[in-house]
Simulated scan of single mutants.
Amino acid sequence: MRIEEADPKGLVRESYRIEGITLGECKSIFVDWALSLPVDAPMKDALRALIAHYATGAPDHPMSGVMEQGLLAPDTPKRKGGRAARVGLA
């Protein structure tokens, strides 16, 4: 995945440029980044690309840790709706 696809608004790039950024600020930026991805974008692939591009050169940066934690998050479960969710498939 190209870095422009992984960080369409440049939020992660800018977080690495902010001197003295805190963990809390990085978490907030991470949420904004996740919401800016297209719905069908593979988030973990995007995170891997961003980590390879930014975190390897700055392993102690708070955003590096936030992105690593993002990789550990479980995949989003698929929603079952309607009758099938209430009574199961017949």
Results as ranks from 00 to 15, higher is better:
P38E: 12
V66L: 07
R13Y: 00
P62E: 03
G88C: 14
G24A: 13
I18S: 14
G81Q: 15
D75A: 13
F30R: 10
R17D: 05
L71C: 13
V87M: 13
S64N: 03
A58M: 07
A58C: 09
E19M: 06
K78M: 09
Q69I: 06
P8L: 04
L89C: 02
L47H: 00
E4D: 15
C26W: 00
P42W: 06
Y54H: 13
G88F: 09
R79T: 05
A46G: 03
F30M: 02
D60C: 04
A85D: 13
H61K: 08
K80T: 14
I29C: 04
I3E: 04
G65S: 15
G24T: 12
L11H: 07
L23M: 15
L47D: 00
D45A: 11
L50M: 11
A90G: 12
L47F: 08
S15L: 01
I29L: 07
V12K: 07
I29V: 15
D32H: 13
S28V: 06
P59E: 04
D7K: 00
E4H: 05
V39L: 04
I3G: 05
P38C: 05
T76F: 13
E25A: 06
V87E: 00
G81V: 10
S36Q: 15
A46W: 10
V12W: 03
I21K: 04
C26F: 07
I3T: 05
E25F: 01
R48A: 10
A41V: 07
P8S: 10
L72M: 07
P59Y: 07
K9W: 01
R2S: 12
T76C: 06
A90I: 01
A6C: 11
L47A: 11
I21V: 14
A73D: 05
F30I: 01
S28K: 14
T76W: 08
A58Q: 11
I3Q: 02
V87H: 06
R86H: 00
V12N: 08
P74G: 12
G57W: 12
R17M: 14
K80Q: 14
